[in-house]
Structure formats: C-alpha cells, structure tokens
Design a protein around this nucleic acid. Structure first.
Lengths: 185, 185
DNA sequence: TTGGTATCGATACCGACGGTAGCATAACTC
DNA sequence: GAGTTATGCTACCGTCGGTATCGATACCAA
C-alpha cells in the first residue's frame, strides 16, 4: 500500500513565519502607508527574504488581503438578540479598522483590486463572504440587506479613517450602532 | 500709476486644457485602474505633454484630487425641506460615484493620502469641507453629525464599488436615503 | 518689428518599486 | 546516504512618479 502518513511530504517543510509576515505587513503599512510599504521592507521587517514572500503569495495585493483575512477573525457574536449581535458586529469592525495599519491596508487593496479582477474576487470571497454568511444566519435578513449592512459599517469606518487618519470616536460608533438597529430592527 | 490691467501678465498664457486633462484622467482611470493610469498615459490621452501636467499639479494625487473636486460640483439642493435636501444629496453622491472612474479615483487618492499629510489636507479641505459647510446650513445639524453623514453616504457607496466594481443599485440607494432620513429626521 | 517673458512639447534621465530567475544551501523523509 | 522541497541571496527586468533641460511658441510692451 502507499504511504498514508498524511503529514509526510518529502522535502524541507515551510518555516512557520506567516504570523510574523502578517504582523510585519501591518506594522510597515502603518509606519509608511500602503504605497511606500514595499515588499522588500515588509520582508526585512519580518526577517525573511523577499523571494519567500512571493513563493507564498502571488502579489502584494494578495499578501495584504491574506493579512486582512487573518486580522479580521470570526465575529464573536453572543446570540442573545439581533440587536445585540448587530451592535457587537459594528463595534468589532470599528475596533479592527482602528488597529494600526488595517484601514490603510484596506484602502490599498481596494485600489489594487480595480483592474485586477482576480484580486477583487479574492477580496470579496475571502474577506466579505464569511461575514455575509454568519450575519445572514444571525440576523435572519436577506442577503441584499446583509451586503448593504456591510457596506454601511465598513464603508463608513474606512471613510472616516481615510479623511482624518484617525479612528471614529466612540460617540459616532454609538450613533452608527443605533442607526443600524433602527434600520434592521 | 502702475499698470492695473489684471489680465496683463507677460509671457505665453496657459493653454486652457484643464477640462481635457480632467476628462482624460477619469477616462484613463476607468479603463486601466488607478495604478496603471500613469501620468504619461493621462497626458497622452489629453493630447499634451507629461511635463505640462507636472507644471500645474505637484503630484498625481493632487491632479486626481483636483479632478474629483471638479467632478463633484456644488450640491443642487432645492431647499424645500430637510428630508428633500438630504435625499437630493445622497442621490447626487450616488450618481457621481457611479460615473466611470470616479470611485477608482477616490480609492486611489485615499491610498496615496496615507503617509502624505499634504494630500490628505487637500482632500479634506478641497473636497469634503465645501459639502460640510453647505450641508450644515441646509440641514441645521451640528458639524459632528454632518461629518458622520458624509462618512456614511460616501463610505457606503465607495465600499460597494470597491467590493463589486458596480455602482449601488437604486433600491439600495433608496434604503440609504430612508435610513438617513430616519437618522436625521 | 523687436525684445522680454512665460509656457509648451520633447527627450532624457533618476531612483524606487513589483515581480522573476538562478543558484547554493539548509531541512526534512525514506 | 539519496531525493525532495524551501530558503536566502543576488542580480535582473520593465515600469512608474517625478525632475531637468532645451528649443520652439505665444503673448505683451515699446
């Protein structure tokens, strides 16, 4: 019979540096902005070679998208009520987008995704789609409403970061929560 | 007395090609995306030399910002009622952001503005500030509420364009109008 | 007509960036 | 050991944002 040992691939195993790379990516983007955060600098900050990055991700946009998917984990919903889950989702998004480098990374990927359909599919499929599914289940609203909700939450928070460079203040996040609770309540 | 003729500067006058440049900028960004819409290509599309562009705008980001300021003209408010003015503003923004190249230009400038404080000030001061003033007057709401409103409208519409590449459908724009009318009504 | 001035097109150039190729070497399995 | 895969390193390519330069051009004033 063939060797059925699942983790028995020959050759040198991949070094587990993905976490360091993601951390270095956000750190570098936060310090220098998306454009000046070159792949060379990110690799140097992660302590690896630039070629190693291109062996794992096909482009800078794909790297940053993977970085965002890693940063935005699963939504920590409570399931107590629709209003509660909605508020949790909004505040979770606000917290994540307020983390250093996240908003800049988001804007950069959006820009790269124009005229790069593969990257746009990656962005919509890997980043937005999981939240669409879980919010559809938690809120019991049709998909069109869920996608609208995501547009409002993420778009609003990103626009504030893009215009001011600062995360949205808590009182405005509160207003966003109340507005959407009225909308979906 | 000194020669007080206002339009009597010596030398060759500037050729009036700003409109062609703005048109070429949006056209090229729409065709190729922000990154691949190089200043060379924009200049060629406008039928002028690249150096002429850099004599009028200090950077690609400044050119695109000026292009957006030109595209987004003054808000055509009716003054009939707050609800009417609000709906008009939202639909005006949706129409403009749906025009070819506008959303891509917006996203690109946001990306460039990170780590370029001068460009960010240009963006906030030239593009956002006029709308803040006129909406503050028309809606009679405090500045914080107006800025929040702008974040929601522009952010939501841009996020939809960034994720799907298509403008927001009319039914969703309607939902956006109703949601904000409830919020500010 | 002449001279002064500011803009224009064209070209060449620089530094930086995204991405690729090649090679020696290290790390693992059998 | 042999075979296989990943890594670091260096060198390289094409492109892009932005600058410098120069002759030609279009205006004004005298």
């Amino acid at each position: 019979m063939t060797s059925a040992n699942s983790s028995a691939r020959p050759g040198r195993p991949r070094s587990s540096v993905d976490a360091e790379v993601f951390s270095a990516t956000l750190r570098t983007i936060d310090e220098l902005g998306y454009t000046r955060a070159t792949v060379d600098r990110i690799a140097a900050s992660a302590g690896i070679a630039k070629t190693t990055i291109y062996r794992r991700w096909p482009s800078k946009g794909a790297l940053v998208t993977a970085c965002l998917v890693d940063t935005f984990g699963p939504l920590p919903l409570t399931g107590r009520s629709r209003a509660d889950d909605l508020a949790t989702a909004v505040r979770y998004g606000a917290a994540k987008i307020g983390e250093p480098g996240v908003a800049a990374a988001f804007a950069g990927v959006f820009t790269d995704a124009i005229g790069d359909p593969a990257l746009r599919e990656l962005l919509a499929g890997q980043l937005q789609e999981p939240y669409r599914v879980v919010l559809h289940e938690a809120l019991g609203e049709p998909d069109q409403r869920i996608l609208f909700l995501i547009d409002v939450v993420i778009g609003t928070l990103l626009h504030r970061m893009g215009m001011t460079g600062e995360p949205m203040v808590e009182s405005d996040v509160d207003a966003l929560v109340r507005m959407l609770q009225r909308e979906l309540g």
